[in-house]
């Protein structure tokens, strides 16, 4: 059972409302598109920031996402929710930017990426922040490959189903299920390791 801690913009009423706004936008009412931007900007920005890990670049990618969505709006066929379609554009925009940056020396298609949680020693400031397990998990998330961290964000933060994540990322559903399991298990193992280290330090 997924737990939604964010506003649920994806209920049936929201979908109807999105459709009215899309129709109005296509009739030339740009103010309606602004409502859609304001509705989804936080989530689109979060997706971009999870992949790019840089606020300025994430903001540019998020802006590109909305401009691309606006241009392609007439072709939106309502096979999926508007949010899913939008996140698909956001995901691709962020991944394309990330590829250009070439931050990672390894191929981002590496299927073992879920195993890679960096072992970089936390800075003294980070160490202070890691006083609880939540901070430890979030620190581990920031060390994960961006694509992997964004998969977890889609699943937990945006309450997307595995099917919708598959539509967004282009990965198969079974691949996503395996990745989600292994990513979370890697987080659990990382947490166990960090807690053991802390206990040793205390002794």
């Amino acid at each position: 059972m997924q737990v939604n801690f964010a506003k649920d913009y994806s209920n049936t009423l929201g979908m109807d409302n999105d459709q009215h706004l899309i129709t109005a936008t296509l009739r030339g009412d740009q103010a309606s598109f602004r409502v859609l931007v304001e509705r989804y900007q936080d989530y689109v920005f979060t997706v971009a920031n999870k992949v790019l890990r840089n606020r300025e670049e994430a903001e540019e990618a998020a802006q590109d996402t909305f401009v691309k969505a606006y241009r392609a709006l007439a072709g939106f066929e309502q096979r999926s929710r508007f949010s899913t379609w939008l996140y698909q554009i956001a995901w691709r925009a962020a991944i394309d930017r990330q590829r250009l940056k070439k931050l990672n020396s390894q191929s981002i298609d590496d299927n073992n990426s879920f195993l890679q949680i960096g072992d970089r020693e936390p800075t003294p400031e980070e160490h202070l922040q890691q006083k609880n397990t939540k901070a430890l998990v979030h620190h581990a998330l920031s060390q994960m490959k961006p694509e992997d961290a964004s998969l977890l964000a889609f699943y937990y933060l945006q309450e997307q189903s595995v099917k919708e994540i598959s539509e967004i990322t282009g990965l198969t559903e079974s691949n996503i299920k395996v990745k989600l399991f292994r990513l979370r298990d890697a987080l659990k193992n990382h947490l166990a390791k960090q807690l053991k280290t802390e206990v040793k330090d205390l002794l």
Binding site: V3, F5, A6, Q41, D42, Y43, F45, T46, N49, R55, A58, E59, A62, T133, K134, L136, V137, H138, L141, L152, A153, Y156, L157, R184, L187, K188, L191
Partner: peptide, 16 residues
């Protein structure tokens, strides 16, 4: 596992 679940569920949306 429950600690990780709880931490992941507590992820916060970011704002531009």
């Amino acid at each position: 596992v429950q600690e990780v679940q709880s931490a992941l569920a507590g992820m916060e949306v970011e704002q531009p």
